[in-house]
Structures are given as structure tokens and as C-alpha cells.
Amino acid sequence: MKQDYFSANNIKYIDYKDIEILKKFLGPNGKIVGHKRTGVTSKNQRQLTSAIKHARFLGLLPFVIK
């Protein structure tokens, strides 16, 4: 079983500006990878998705990678 990245690194608040971390959870097309593959807890996965969506809105992350 893969461990939760955020609890392992003691990250309590997932920031939308931290693109390097958020990029780890994007697939090759820019889609958000599910918790089954990443091992992120449900609570953190919810925070992660909203952080990625906020970053997308401000143009820090792409909606689609061609």
C-alpha cells in the first residue's frame, strides 16, 4: 500500500501555488489522478482537487496537456 504523500511530509494545508507538488498528481493529459493510484487519503484528495482547480483557474496549471 502506498502511503499518503501529504501526511508523510507533514503538509496540513495544500496550497494552490505549490505547483511542483500538484504536478505529481496529474496524469499525462493533465487529469487529476485518483486516490486509488496515489494513496492519498479522502480528506487530502478533496483538498488536492480544489487546489489543482484553483491553480488551473489562475493559469498556473493546464486544463489539458495536448
Binding site: K12, Y13, Y16, K17, D18, H54, F57, L58
Partner: peptide
């Protein structure tokens, strides 16, 4: 062009993570 207002926490989280990595 755009702006985003979010509720957040006082603590700064960005700098601490980078040092660990």
C-alpha cells in the same frame, strides 16, 4: 485579468516543504 479570493490559514506552508525535499 482574473483574481481568486480564498479562505486560508495564517501559517505559511510553501517554504517549509521545499527544504524537506
Amino acid at each position: 485579468i482574473r483574481f481568486l479570493i480564498l479562505k486560508t490559514v495564517k501559517e505559511n506552508t510553501i517554504a517549509a516543504k521545499r527544504f524537506i525535499r
